[in-house]
Every structure is written in structure tokens, then in C-alpha cells.
């Protein structure tokens, strides 16, 4: 049977894509951020997951406002990265796992999560940047797992509640654990932490709120569900709502997790950047 071995979180800022391209790993601005990743890569090297569920939010590449799914699940054999309009180098397609995708979709809908299935889905920096951080050279890394992208809407309100996000993750856990093949799975929650790009409040970052979220997501994710969506906008910034992806990831890990790695750095671009490795308790 399938097993979920752990969860990975990462910010997915576009500037990171450029910094990777320009190999700025030891640059004083970037080093404190990039230094959070090698210990997690060691863990991945050791455990060799077969599949990475990549929970991210699309930023206007895969979806537009004409049709905006609240929760979308990829069901393709591969996922193309395409031009986003501002010159991040385009990556090769990422290998999918359609059999697992449809298993997840069947299970989620049976569990009353009305998702959108996507047989074609262009994936943007929200998906690709964390892949590059955890599997350098992605997708052309020999250890690159197959992937199922899951995108939640944070572009347009109403966005899902934190409780819905956590519950989505719990249903995802049920789906994954019922997959009848011996595959090792990691679940990624990408985006955040606090940032706001728009309005007179642009540049807002909230260190103490981010740190509280990074602590509670380990020990007491249920407590975070009491934060309303507007409170999340207020405290994490308009784009800090991407924390919903972390909640979805956390729900998939089960009750008890062990935090093995944790890194937080301000600023990367306009953002408080958080990185974590949570191992599922045996």
C-alpha cells in the first residue's frame, strides 16, 4: 500500500527561479534562504519518494478568471511549464502519474470535495520553484518523483477557509493511503509566508504571525482553522493567503509529525520565506 512519509513546505517566489538560474547560492542576499534546503535534500536522498503531491496556487498561467476552480487536480501524464511573461527560464515538462491522479479524484469526490480535474495543466513558478529547490535540476534530476499538482484558488475571493484547506488535506490523506500500490509519497505545500504585493500596504511582512503559523502547523493545526480569511489577509498580507497550501499539506500528514528542518528568512523579494520538513510519525 501507499505510504506518506512526510511533508515539505517552501515559498515559491519567482525571483528564486532567477536566482537558481544565475546560481546565486552563496550570494549574501540569497545564502540564508538557500541554506535551508540541503538538509532536506539529504532526507529526500535517503528516503527516495516515488511521488510528490505538489499543492500550490496558480498565479495566472494555468487558469484565468473566465473559469476559476477553487480546487483543481492534475490528471495528466506530464505537466508543461510555460512562459509567464516576465522571463523566468522555462523548464522541461514534469512527469505525472495519471493513475494516482484519478484515484485521488475518485476518492476526493466520493468524500464530497467537488474538485476540477485537469488533463492539461500548465504549471507556473508556484509549482516549479519548490521542485527546483528540493530536486536541483528538476525535472532532469534522476531522483525526480512523479507528481500530481493540486492548485487552490487564492487569486480571487472567495478563497477557501483554513478549515476547508485542512479538511481537504485530511481527505487527500485518505485517498493516498487507499492507493493499492507500494509507493512512497511526499506532500508539498508551497507559497507564503506573509507578503503583500498590491496597494498602499505593499511590502507588508509579519514576522511574528509567520513564526506562530510555523509553530502551530506542527503541533496544533486545528487552532489555525479559527483564523478567518479576512483575518488571514490582514495578518499575512493579501498574498499571504497562500498559507492555505500549507494547511492542505498538513492535513495529509496525519495527527503526529516530527519537525526535522525549519528555516525562516526575511526578505526574499517581498516575502517572509519559510521552509520546513515534517516527517510523519511511524
Amino acid at each position: 500500500m501507499a505510504t506518506i512519509i512526510g511533508g515539505l513546505t517552501s515559498s515559491h517566489i519567482p525571483a528564486v527561479g532567477n536566482a537558481i538560474h544565475n546560481k546565486l547560492f552563496d550570494d549574501p542576499y540569497w545564502k540564508p534562504f538557500f541554506d535551508g534546503y540541503p538538509p532536506i535534500r539529504e532526507w529526500l536522498d535517503h528516503h527516495k519518494p516515488d511521488v510528490a503531491i505538489n499543492i500550490y496556487n496558480d498565479h495566472g498561467l494555468g487558469f484565468f478568471l473566465d473559469r476559476m476552480p477553487t480546487f483543481a487536480i492534475g490528471a495528466a501524464a506530464e505537466y508543461r511549464n510555460e512562459d509567464e511573461g516576465w522571463g523566468i527560464p522555462k523548464l522541461d515538462p514534469f512527469p505525472g502519474d495519471p493513475e494516482l491522479s484519478w484515484h485521488i479524484i475518485e476518492s476526493m469526490v466520493a468524500d464530497e470535495f467537488d474538485i476540477t480535474s485537469c488533463q492539461e495543466l500548465a504549471v507556473d513558478h508556484g509549482f516549479t520553484v519548490p521542485m527546483q529547490l528540493f530536486w536541483p535540476g528538476a525535472p532532469n534530476n534522476p531522483a525526480m518523483p512523479r507528481t500530481v499538482p493540486i492548485s487552490a484558488n487564492t487569486v480571487q475571493h472567495p478563497i477557501p477557509t483554513l478549515k476547508r484547506a485542512l479538511d481537504f488535506g485530511k481527505a487527500l490523506r485518505k485517498a493516498l493511503l487507499s492507493f493499492p500500490k507500494d509507493v512512497k509519497i511526499v506532500v508539498m505545500g508551497t507559497g507564503g509566508l506573509s507578503h503583500q504585493l498590491d496597494g498602499q500596504r505593499a511590502g507588508f511582512i509579519n514576522k511574528s504571525f509567520d513564526q506562530m503559523c510555523m509553530e502551530k502547523i506542527v503541533t496544533a493545526p486545528e487552532e489555525l482553522t479559527h483564523i478567518s480569511r479576512m483575518e488571514l489577509v490582514e495578518k499575512a498580507g493579501a498574498q499571504g493567503t497562500e498559507f492555505l497550501m500549507w494547511m492542505m499539506m498538513r492535513g495529509a500528514l496525519g495527527d503526529k509529525v516530527v519537525p526535522l528542518e525549519k528555516n525562516y528568512h526575511i526578505p526574499i523579494s517581498n516575502t517572509g520565506a519559510g521552509t520546513m520538513l515534517l516527517e510523519c510519525a511511524a
Binding site: 478568471l65 487569486v155 480571487q156 475571493h157 472567495p158 503583500q196 498590491d198 496597494g199 498602499q200 500596504r201 505593499a202 478567518s228 480569511r229 479576512m230 483575518e231 489577509v233 490582514e234 493579501a238
Partner: peptide, 19 residues
Amino acid sequence: PFDQHADIPGTTIFDGKQA
């Protein structure tokens, strides 16, 4: 009510009306 009537200075909630 908080979700419907948020007034966060310097912040526009991109909702159906704005969309």
C-alpha cells in the same frame, strides 16, 4: 460578517465585484 465587510487599509479585496 468580518469576511464580508473587511476594511484593511491599503488593501483591495479582489472579489467578484472587482473581478
